[in-house]
Design a protein around this nucleic acid. Structure first.
Lengths: 214, 214
DNA sequence: TTGTTGTCCTTGGTATACCAAATATTCAGA
DNA sequence: TCTGAATATTTGGTATACCAAGGACAACAA
């Protein structure tokens, strides 16, 4: 009935990447007709795409129902990191307590080691890596629900990851390594602790970074 | 522009309550045209409503994209309770650690005391009460994100709450009282512990109940 | 100049027409 | 009776027409 992927699905992805790449700044109104024309489809798929993005939290309907690219507040950001800490500490713990192919983790460690020895990735690449690593840990924990929830949360803060804080790069890499080491050592407590440290540090860094701007 | 509430919104609610009340059994296909006619609206709002329900997880798109009332699996149920434990232990803890008007909680305790002294509510009423209590605790924790997440999770298992396990009624009431007492005593550790016991017990009860049926 | 009012236009909400794919059905031929 | 191809029907996906509400703006009166 549909050709591999519906137009609506396609439109969701296009809009989402536009938002995540910052091409659509926070606060941009997503008018149905405008974007239908811009993307070369009718209003129907755009409408459906917007509805999906609203449910994902990337877009909110402001006054009079005008869908607008979500301007994420500091409060929200803190709440997201708080929730992520709850969920990801658990996935780290669980992943560390089940058997998994060490090669999975060694692959990530090699890349991280590379980062430490000078070859810095660009922002987008590093954001992708971070995303992949956290999701891998979530996936191996064995709960697809937790995985989806974490994915949804990480998505919302992805806009932030793009303009990451330079001073956080190296500490972040080391924290990731600590998490991987704990998983490789099959030490649940250490894995949970390392993840907690990682997310707490990220939160602190973001908060001080934001405060410095104001 | 819209008369208080859009038809689509209205349709979501109608479909949702039909699902939660069991009027639409798990596995029922939600055909757009059929329900459009049944509800007296066009396909458009029905389509949007179905999309919303899919994103809520009450409906899934099975083979060939036919939306179907979600048949929740035991695995999913366990995963949901697992996630709820993570989130609700935290909200219980936080709610217990901030100041709140004791009257809020005393009101719930009075109702629970009534339940213990004989006046049993019917299933739907008790499900509503349980929902209200858990959501109140989540709300007072101060994180609207956690609140939404918990709400979403509770929604998915609501179909289960309807046909609750009789033997769980009194223990459930006592567990709720324990949680409320901990909150009233401003004892975060006790609140978290009580919530953990409550959810763990619920999970065990559901699992043994289901196993007995098979 | 200022305030009001009426018109126009934009916007999201809804209904509906049409399409393509998949399935069900029917009917002819062996 | 069985088979298989042609046809009808059903279904979700898409495009589009229309509507009412709200805002922008111009024109006119005080």
């Amino acid at each position: 009935m549909q050709k591999e992927q519906s137009l609506a699905e396609n439109t969701v992805q296009r809009l989402r990447t536009m938002i995540l790449r910052g091409e659509l700044a926070s606060g941009t109104p997503l008018q149905e007709r405008t974007f239908a024309e811009k993307l070369g489809v009718s209003r129907t798929p755009v409408r459906e795409a917007i509805a999906r993005l609203v449910s994902e939290g990337l877009v909110t309907r402001t006054h009079r129902g005008v869908p607008t690219v979500n301007r994420i507040s500091i409060t929200e950001l803190v709440e997201i990191l708080h929730a992520r800490r709850l969920l990801e500490c658990e996935t780290a713990r669980q992943t560390a307590s089940v058997h998994s192919d060490p090669e999975i983790w060694l692959k990530y460690k090699r890349i991280l080691a590379g980062y430490l020895s000078g070859e810095r990735p660009d922002r987008a690449e590093h954001a992708d890596f971070d995303y992949a690593l956290h999701m891998q840990i979530a996936r191996m924990a064995g709960s697809s629900l937790l995985c989806e929830m974490i994915e949804g949360l990480k998505l919302k803060t992805r806009i932030f990851d793009q303009g990451e804080i330079p001073a956080r790069f190296e500490p972040g890499v080391r924290e990731h390594i600590a998490i991987l080491d704990a998983i490789l050592a099959r030490d649940p407590d250490a894995a949970e602790g390392a993840m907690r440290v990682h997310i707490d540090n990220a939160r602190e860094a973001i908060l001080t970074h934001i405060n410095r701007l104001m």
